[in-house]
Each structure stands twice: as C-alpha cells, then as structure tokens.
C-alpha cells in the first residue's frame, strides 16, 4: 500500500511530529511504500537546522534525516508556511536576502501542489496534528 503523511504539528510542542516519524518508520518496516511526507503550517519547523536540544532529550531532526538517508523518503516543506516560520533553503535565503539557509538540506521546499499530488497518488494520507 502507498502511504503519504501530512505533518501539521510543531516538533517541539506535543507529540504529533514524533508520532509521524515513528509511523513513517513502521510503514517502511511493514513493507509498504512511503510516497512523501509533507510538512505544513507549524509542521515545517521539523526542518529547523539550528535547533539545540538538551542531551537528555531526543533531537527530532535526527529521525527525519535518518528516514531520508536510509530509505530515500521525500520530505517536503510547504514554501508559504516555511517562509513564515523562517525555514529557508539556499534558494529562498538568497531570494529574500537573508544571511543563509535555516532549513536542513534534506528537506525540499515546494508548494501545496506536492500535497495534492501526494493525495492523488497514495492509497492512504495520514494527518498528524491539527
């Protein structure tokens, strides 16, 4: 079965974002296909490259990076939400004359069309947060 995920929760408030990452791992472990993870609204903060967590707390970014590196999971942050939350890739940072990128490069910045595409091409679309 083909899954896609929509993440609306902030990674630093509640557990929606963490649940999404763990669900993604389970989808893959069970042999399903994970088409895309789309981050919208405060969910885009999952891409924050400069967050610093205390040693006794899990760094949520690490789980997403592992998913992308080990299983080639496509991680997409919504451009309009990302800009409002200060999550810029190299291109957006240059375009808006900001000092540098703030989003981890494992995430792709793109539009809501990627969410529409994920719905059209997945058997299941699971929303986390909201």
């Amino acid at each position: 079965m083909i899954y896609s995920l929509l993440v609306l929760s902030s990674p630093i408030s509640g557990h929606g974002s963490r649940n999404a990452a763990e669900f993604a791992q389970c989808v893959i472990a069970r042999g399903h296909s994970l088409h895309r993870v789309f981050f919208l609204d405060t969910g885009t903060l999952a891409s924050a490259a400069n967050c610093v967590f205390p040693q006794d707390e899990a760094d949520p970014l690490r789980t997403w990076v592992a998913l992308a590196e080990q299983h080639a999971v496509e991680l997409v942050i919504c451009v309009s939400s990302a800009l409002k939350h200060g999550m810029l890739d190299q291109v957006e940072a240059a375009r808006h004359e900001r000092p540098g990128p703030t989003a981890n490069p494992i995430f792709t910045v793109s539009g809501l069309g990627q969410l529409v595409d994920a719905c059209a091409n997945s058997d299941r679309l699971i929303t986390f947060g909201g």
Partner: peptide, 11 residues
C-alpha cells in the same frame, strides 16, 4: 489554502 490548491489542480 489546501482546499484552494486542491481545486486549482482540478482534484
């Protein structure tokens, strides 16, 4: 925004 984007892509 998601509603409008979905409609804009004729879904």
């Amino acid at each position: 925004d998601t509603v409008l984007a979905t409609a804009a892509f004729s879904q």
